[in-house]
Simulated scan of single mutants.
Amino acid sequence: MAADELKRNLAAERRRAEALALRKRAERLASRDPRAAWEIARAIGEPWYRVQALCAVAEQWPDAGRRAGLLDEALRIADGLDEINRRVVLSARPLRTMAQTQPDIAAAHIARLLKIAAAEPHRLRRAHALKALLAATSAHASLRAPVADALIATLLEGRGDRIDWLIRLTMATIERDRPERVAALLAHHGEGRRKRRFLERRRLDDEARKPVVADTAPSR
């Protein structure tokens, strides 16, 4: 039984390695020959790497309609994953590009994915999924705000080092949209060295952002 399991694990590792190699080839080729890169992407069996390759191709495809089709294909593949966390995290990759080229369509997908993420019972996995969505929408305030709200609510429900890490990691983005929630997140963060260092960095950053007031007193 152990030998059979080892064989299955080795076979799975080989498939992942082959898929990763194909994804890298597609990414390298996309800017020079997006059609050839698309053919490589289609040959990738692992959904995770296939989606990444399709997005790399879409970003280089000259035709807007075909680009949109590639991103839709990537989203359909991500939707086929069983685990909520992985489905949302993988969907964030095409949404990052779609947010730039089709913000209205991206908004509809984000609303759908927020509902899917809400069904994730494990708070940390839900928070990780929402963090990926926040990163995908970080340059677009109208898309980012509802994701920030969902992430804040999830972070305030959870506890532990990983939740604290996510608070620190996403604070700068959250603060742009919901500065009024910063105090609650900081209070929720566990006490200790990491929190003290984080607060000190924030204090120094605030000091650095303050305008320098020139000394206008007359010289004697």
Rank of each mutant, 00 (worst) to 15 (best):
A68H: 13
D79K: 09
L134I: 05
R32Q: 12
D149F: 01
A2D: 13
E180W: 01
W165V: 15
D206I: 04
R86F: 07
G190R: 05
N9M: 15
R209P: 03
R93L: 14
D164W: 07
D33V: 11
A119I: 01
E73G: 01
G160W: 10
L156E: 10
V57S: 10
H109Q: 09
A214T: 14
E13D: 13
R87F: 00
E18R: 04
A106G: 08
L133D: 07
T216E: 11
A17D: 07
I44H: 07
Y49T: 04
A53V: 08
R123P: 14
E83H: 13
E46Q: 10
A117Y: 02
A53F: 10
L156V: 07
H128C: 14
R96M: 06
A127T: 11
Y49E: 14
I77L: 04
A111E: 08
T216A: 12
A118K: 13
A184L: 09
A183K: 11
L166K: 03
R87Q: 08
I110P: 00
I174A: 06
R220A: 15
A41P: 02
N9P: 06
K195Y: 07
V147E: 03
S142H: 09
D161F: 13
L29W: 05
H109C: 07
D82H: 11
I163Y: 06
R196D: 06
E180A: 04
A108Y: 09
L185H: 06
A2H: 12
P146T: 13
L155V: 06
T173H: 13
D215Y: 02
T154C: 10
A119N: 05
R144C: 04
L156R: 11
I110C: 01
E27W: 11
R8K: 13
A37E: 01
A108G: 14
R87W: 00
A106D: 08
I40T: 12
L6V: 15
A172T: 14
S219H: 15
L113T: 00
R25A: 13
R93T: 15
R112I: 03
L6E: 15
D206V: 04
L71F: 05
R125S: 09
A21T: 13
I116F: 00
R194S: 08
A107E: 12
E207P: 07
L134E: 09
V57K: 06
I116G: 00
R87D: 01
T97I: 13
E157N: 10
D104L: 11
T173R: 14
R8H: 09
R112H: 10
K24N: 08
A12E: 15
I163V: 12
V57I: 03
P62Y: 04
S142I: 06
H128F: 15
A148W: 02
R14Q: 12
L81K: 00
A217L: 14
V51C: 04
L6T: 12
R181G: 00
P103V: 08
A58E: 07
A53E: 04
A184Y: 06
D82R: 14
L130I: 05
E200T: 14
A214W: 08
L133T: 07
R86I: 07
A78L: 00
R159A: 05
R181Y: 02
L199P: 09
A139T: 12
V51P: 02
R67P: 08
A58W: 06
A111G: 02
A17H: 02
A119D: 10
A135D: 15
R197K: 12
R162I: 13
R176I: 13
A217V: 12
A208T: 10
Q52E: 15
R15Y: 05
R76F: 03
